[in-house]
């Protein structure tokens, strides 16, 4: 049984223009101890998915799912009280913005310890010892002194390390990391990624890593789920996805990554033309067809989720056929 099993998850948000279908029936699962990457551009529903899993959706949002099970517990019908018993204890979250994710009024020690005290009923002294241990593990020196510091005394990279330590305090089974490196400098990004991967393997924690950066995915993910316009349009083990992407959107994303040695100096970087369709109201047919270089009349119909060799699925009518010649990319010099 997977640790997290999601089937036909939908999140709807009422907005002025009507009903925004932020997440439109997605399926995925996470095994114990594995790292799943959710990839997609802004507005594809990946953050809404993570908030739905944590039970932290905006008040007006409506959630429905055929199955939303965490370790056999149905999250969709759980009371808010039982839900808050799981949050922080068995599933934890790391957010995108380390600069604002910590409360300016309390010391790091206070904020690190309170979750453990709440969930495990340990003494403040025991909680501080675990906090010191974990701060050390995430690479923060002089951990003991740091406990009495305030968030504003730390850089963004350090704060994100604190957030990681905070997520690990109760030894959760699942950590959801929502673009944890996006707000950081590139050099710090690499450190944080390496750290997350190490800790995930050391503690055997399952991680859902949310990112828009396929370059990051290749380095850390066991499996990848690519999201587009509120749907998972392709999911596969990482090597399979990179070797033979089944969906034109995934191929488009991969061709956007400049590769040292292959991308010629001075050549224009690839981009996917067009914009994501509006998610207000229903989307008819394949959501990607107006940007797809291989679009056919068939794409007016909603594509099925096609199974490919290996644990690989893609939501495209042509996923199992040879790739037609790609539309000539516009080149400019």
């Amino acid at each position: 049984m997977p640790l997290l099993d999601v089937n036909n998850l939908r999140v709807d948000l009422p907005v002025e223009a009507g009903m925004l279908h932020a997440v439109r029936g997605i399926d995925f699962h996470v095994e114990r101890g594995e790292m799943l990457c959710l990839v997609g551009e802004s507005g594809c529903g990946k953050s809404m998915t993570s908030l739905a899993l944590m039970g932290l959706l905006p008040r007006k949002a409506r959630l429905s799912a055929d199955r939303l099970e965490f370790d056999g517990t149905d999250l969709a019908t759980l009371s808010e009280r039982r839900r808050s018993d799981l949050r922080g204890a068995r599933m934890a979250m790391i957010f995108q913005e380390p600069m604002t994710a910590l409360n300016p009024a309390y010391t790091l020690g206070n904020q690190l310890c309170e979750g453990l005290i709440r969930h495990r009923g340990v003494s403040r002294r025991e909680a501080r010892e675990r906090a010191i241990y974990l701060l050390g593990r995430v690479g923060i020196s002089a951990a003991k002194e740091r406990l009495d510091q305030y968030p504003h005394q730390l850089s963004g990279g350090l704060r994100q390390r604190v957030m990681i330590a905070m997520a690990l305090m109760c030894e959760p089974d699942l950590i959801i990391a929502d673009e944890p490196t996006t707000a950081l400098d590139v050099t710090i990004q690499a450190q944080i990624l390496r750290l997350l991967r190490e800790l995930q393997q050391e503690f055997g924690t399952a991680v859902i890593f949310i990112t828009h950066d396929l370059g990051v995915v290749a380095r850390i993910a066991d499996r990848v789920a690519v999201m587009y316009a509120g749907e998972v349009i392709e999911s596969a083990p990482t090597p399979a996805l990179y070797a033979a992407p089944g969906h034109p959107y995934t191929r488009g994303l991969l061709s956007c990554i400049p590769t040292p040695g292959r991308t010629l100096p001075g050549s224009r970087l690839q981009a996917i033309p067009g914009v994501v369709p509006s998610l207000v109201g229903d989307v008819k047919g394949c959501a990607f067809r107006n940007r797809c270089p291989q679009a056919q009349p068939t794409c007016e119909r909603t594509p099925p989720l096609m199974s490919l060799p290996g644990d690989h699925r893609a939501r495209c009518h042509f996923a199992d056929r040879p790739v037609p010649a790609p539309r000539q990319p516009e080149t400019m010099s």
């Binding site: 018993d85 922080g88 009024a105 969930h119």
Partner: peptide, 26 residues
Amino acid sequence: ESDYIRTARAKGLRAGSVIFKHALRN
């Protein structure tokens, strides 16, 4: 609406703790 309140909720803190400890003080 702030991020650190979302963090506090993500830690599974009780509503009273989120409102009075984390929100009211600020």
